[in-house]
Design a protein around this nucleic acid. Structure first.
Lengths: 224, 224
DNA sequence: GATGGACGTGGTACTCAGTACCGTACTTGC
DNA sequence: GCAAGTACGGTACTGAGTACCACGTCCATC
């Protein structure tokens, strides 16, 4: 298989070389057994340079986390209050698509995270940031409801949980169409979140699905 | 106000003295500015002894986390499969009650956690453990449902979110009856989780509420 | 073509969390 | 008295993360 990355090894930036070196060494010797000095040495830079590019040894595993957060925040802020829940679903899709586009690198990171407790913690901390953004965007979904904050907390955590459920299945290697699964999961989330407040709401996420596909999901939503 | 803790200072165990010293120093100088050596010195023990009692500087903030996890696991395992969702709610109540019984100490910890990123991460990591226990106990709630795992993930994250919503309001000093609030929040969680699978389910949590209180909640549940 | 600033880099030295190991006191049971 | 267990203190070490300084390169300006 030809490399999807056409960049020759020699001209990789120090930033990229550090990531390559880190993943390689973590794979070969484990996370705890690899020192920052080892990573820097393999990347051909000094230890100082490592910390100039990545705040910590863990951070080199999650290189674009901040960019994802910014993209999500931008997507949420751009949405009108009435379409905030659609925006949240779209934001989750942004994250999912990012991981899908990473391919094997994402699965490599997943194997690492599941086997190193400190990395699990770090990942959870990242999820919390997503969830906070979602919750802040969602309070306006139940205007006048005294429980709006609770509902926003519930729905934001559900969105994150649903996204993670689909992502993890894909990361574990399940042969699924992750985006379709995300649609199904998010339908369930929105469905549950709407209970006890408004009538059944049908939300069709803008995507390249076939009309039959859309119709089927509408039928499911109305079935309750 | 008389001290709720009748134990004289002199006979506090080293374990307890370390906690007291840690919270005191964190309050006075901040978490990052306090070294483990400072804590040990104030507690009148050596640095080694600190690490013998608590695995890390963060761990001294969450002294009974493991015990809570065990209590929850025991509560969940003791429940028959058909009453697992009730058990999960009760497990959340165990955690809430623990914090309520801590009183000012819990609020002190909350102030600390909200102001120190590394402690926030640690707390999130703890929540994840609760959530995993809940999810494992809940899969059997939707027998035969191909989406049972997703539903369990959604509901377990909702239980944690609802618990945290109530707990945080109380921690911030809101004058609420936290257990009643938890009942209301959990009713909403169960209600949402039941959507699209079974008919409206009414779950009355075993508690010392008045019949009128129970009746009101039943009325709310049936209103949808 | 020299000057000077911005920037990326490497090196050194430091603090502090966490671990390993060893020696010592103080109990408890025989 | 003695032996085993337990709690503790001290020392020395590794490694992450920070602070600081010194050096080279690339440019823009005069």
């Amino acid at each position: 298989m030809p490399s999807p990355d056409p960049t020759p090894d020699a001209v990789l930036s120090a930033r990229e070389r550090l990531v390559e070196a880190a993943f390689g060494l973590f794979d070969e010797h484990g996370f705890d057994e690899t020192t920052v000095e080892d990573i820097a040495a393999r990347a051909g830079v000094g230890r100082t340079t490592f910390f100039r590019h990545y705040r910590s040894k863990e951070a080199v595993i999650f290189p674009v986390h901040d960019e994802l957060l910014e993209a999500i925040a931008a997507r949420l802020e751009a949405a009108a209050p009435s379409t905030r829940d659609l925006a949240v679903v779209e934001a989750a899709r942004i994250v999912l698509r990012h991981y899908l586009s990473e391919g094997e690198r994402a699965r490599q990171r997943y194997r690492l995270i599941t086997s190193v407790p400190s990395l699990r913690d770090r990942e959870m901390a990242g999820l919390r940031q997503y969830q906070r953004l979602f919750a802040a965007a969602l309070v306006s979904r139940w205007p006048g409801d005294p429980e709006a904050e609770l509902r926003a907390d519930l729905m934001s955590s559900a969105v994150v949980a649903a996204h993670n459920h689909v992502l993890r299945r894909w990361l574990r290697g399940a042969p699924i169409d992750a985006e379709t699964e995300l649609d199904r999961a998010m339908t369930m989330v929105i469905d549950q979140a709407s209970k006890g407040h408004a009538a059944t709401s049908v939300v069709v996420v803008q995507s390249a699905r076939s009309p039959e596909n859309v119709a089927e999901r509408v039928r499911q939503a109305l079935a309750d």
